[in-house]
Amino acid sequence: MELTTVWFIIIAFLWTSYFFLEGFDFGVGMLLPVLGRDDVERRVVINTIGPVWDGNEVWFIVAGAAMFAAFPEWYATLFSGFYLPLLAILLALIIRGVAFEYRGKSDDPRWRARWDKAIFWGSLVPAFLWGVAFANIVRGVPLDADHEFVGTLTDLLNPYALLGGLTTMILFVLHGAVFLALKTSGDIRVQARRVAGIAAVAAVAAGGSFLLITQLQHGKPVTWLTAGGAAAALLFAAAANGRGREGWAFIGTGTAIVLAVATLFTALFPDVMPSTLGAANSLTTENAASTHYTLTIMTWVAVVFTPIVMIYQGWTYWVFRKRIGTSHIPVREPVK
């Protein structure tokens, strides 16, 4: 197998891991005002992802760095052509990270309410725009003969891309609701399961439509399997959630995300960014790649360090595996 293909698969794996892990983070953030009816409940919701959210974002950084090193032409075209959406994502992630850290710095309800809004919008904006971005990558964008993006922001806001954004947003809400049901106890757990049931219906409708359009317009024979598997996983998650089997429901939503991302990357290959102005202008795994020597060094680095990162992150989840509820939140003493 060519190293360019190997690194395309590695990058697909990195993005898949990011969406699987950060997906429920985004979902929890978007559900904060829904399931957190008072400060104690909001602290429970936030604490479910408190130990892991920053570790989950590492996959985004690594995925971006891998694209820069392995496919610099892809990275340059993507980050210049999608500058405004990606800038919005980065600003949202920064504000969200600050909100997690600063929310508890004051007992003033207005102070906390502002940071709660920052967590909500800092989760919703990336959840939506990542879907818009990847839908455009698969669909193709206007690239000239020099592989430069020659379109405008309105070109990126096409119906297919907006449906992709809606799909990821709803799917992450479902993923987050199931995660909250898995990680909490008491009334929050009950309400999270209820929200998951509603979100599952919306996710099946939006996700099924998006995957079907993707398959009909850009798919390959093999992607019928991944797209169909993603739809089946969503239905399985909905059924498991209805029976109160949160663990199986989480496996279902996670599998749906993995197979949906696999559908997009498989449909994309061997292109990394198709051009709507002609196939000759498209970026591929060959014309966008670094040198063979660079890819060889990167491969050895990935072989050594990827298992270490996965083992460490798995250990983190194991340590913080227990459920939490309002009884675990200490009562704050009033400031005298």
Rank of each mutant, 00 (worst) to 15 (best):
A196F: 14
T316Y: 14
A92I: 03
A69I: 14
L235H: 01
F305S: 10
A262S: 08
V141R: 02
P270D: 01
T276M: 05
A227D: 11
W111P: 06
G219Q: 07
G23P: 11
D144Y: 07
N281E: 06
L277D: 13
A256R: 00
G55W: 05
V304Q: 07
G247C: 12
H292V: 13
V52W: 08
E286H: 12
L14R: 03
S327D: 15
A66F: 12
L283G: 04
L171Q: 07
A279T: 11
R243F: 07
T77F: 00
F320K: 00
V204R: 10
L235A: 08
V319W: 15
G104L: 00
L163T: 00
I10T: 15
L212S: 15
R323N: 12
P126D: 02
G247S: 14
A199Y: 06
L14G: 00
D108C: 01
N158S: 01
V195L: 13
V45S: 09
L86M: 02
A127D: 03
A63P: 12
V201N: 08
I95R: 13
D107F: 12
E101N: 09
A135I: 08
T316M: 15
A280N: 03
I213W: 15
F172A: 02
T77Q: 07
T223I: 01
T184W: 05
G97H: 04
P142D: 03
T284S: 02
P109F: 11
A232H: 08
L234H: 03
E41D: 09
P72S: 06
T299W: 15
H292G: 02
L212R: 14
A238N: 05
A205G: 05
L259Y: 00
V204P: 05
L3F: 01
P270A: 05
I49Q: 12
G131S: 03
L31D: 13
G165H: 02
Q215I: 01
A260H: 06
R243D: 11
V173K: 09
I137N: 01
T4D: 08
I95Q: 06
W115F: 15
R96Q: 03
I329E: 00
N56C: 10
W224V: 13
E2P: 13
V40P: 02
F172P: 00
V150P: 09
F24N: 03
Y317M: 04
N47W: 06
S80I: 08
F79C: 02
T284N: 00
R194A: 12
F71L: 08
G244C: 06
Y83D: 04
A63G: 15
L182H: 15
L93Q: 05
Y293G: 14
I94Y: 07
T77S: 15
L163K: 06
